[in-house]
Simulated scan of single mutants.
Amino acid sequence: MAIKRKYVPDLARIMAEGEANYRRLMKLLPSLEEGASYRYGLHLPDGHQGEISLRVTDSFAYTTAIEVEQSLGSSPWLKAPRLHVRLYHDARIAEVIAPKGRMLSGVYVYPNPGMKAPDEKAQLNTFLAEWLNHCIDYGLSPERVDVIRL
């Protein structure tokens, strides 16, 4: 019987992904002013329209907290994904700190009562990267960005 090895985070990959996500978010967020909200329309492969919204929830000298949410239209089957992301301006890194309001741990022992993957945080940061890349590559042009001041 094979012995399962303990999950060890790949710090170099995590930091590189955080730096890349920071750069992607800087492209999509013209302003980091608290309360600023931006929506990007997306054309989905199945022909439906989607939307990704970025909302600055807190803004401080060295950090900014944003909420990234995708609206899927009126799908009764899927809940819209929502991620809380923190930008660290001094380190130029972005990381997912909470999906749908629950805080994440860097590593989970497995198995656990919530059946969280040992690398759940790394997976969510990768998901954020794919989401932002899709928004940059296929979102409506910057001239069509709706800016809402709350």
Rank of each mutant, 00 (worst) to 15 (best):
Y110T: 12
I66T: 04
V85D: 09
H48L: 10
R144Y: 11
L72Y: 00
N125S: 05
I97A: 02
L128E: 01
T64K: 01
A94H: 08
S31H: 02
E51T: 03
S31E: 02
A61Q: 10
H134T: 08
S71K: 10
V147Q: 05
Q123I: 12
L11H: 09
I97K: 06
A65D: 15
S71W: 01
E33P: 05
D10Y: 02
I14Q: 13
E69V: 15
R24A: 09
F127E: 05
T57P: 00
L124A: 05
I66K: 01
L124K: 07
A65C: 11
Q123A: 14
I66P: 00
K4S: 15
V96Q: 08
Y7W: 13
Y138V: 10
H84Y: 01
E67S: 07
P30Q: 02
Q49E: 07
Y138F: 09
D137G: 01
I14A: 14
Y38E: 04
K116R: 12
P111V: 01
S75W: 02
Y62T: 15
I97E: 06
R5D: 14
A36K: 03
M26T: 15
A91S: 11
R39W: 00
N21L: 06
L128H: 03
R102F: 07
Y110M: 12
A36C: 10
L150C: 11
Y88V: 03
S74P: 04
H89A: 08
D46V: 07
R39Y: 00
I148C: 11
E17H: 02
S31I: 03
I136Q: 05
V96S: 06
A16I: 09
L83I: 07
G139P: 09
M103E: 10
H89N: 03
L11N: 12
T126F: 07
D137I: 06
R86A: 03
L44V: 13
R82L: 09
G18R: 04
Q123G: 14
L29K: 04
L54R: 00
E130S: 13
K4W: 00
I148W: 00
L83G: 03
A122L: 11
S105H: 08
V109Q: 15
W131T: 08
S59M: 03
N133A: 11
A16S: 13
R5Q: 13
K4H: 10
A80M: 04
L150Q: 12
M1R: 06
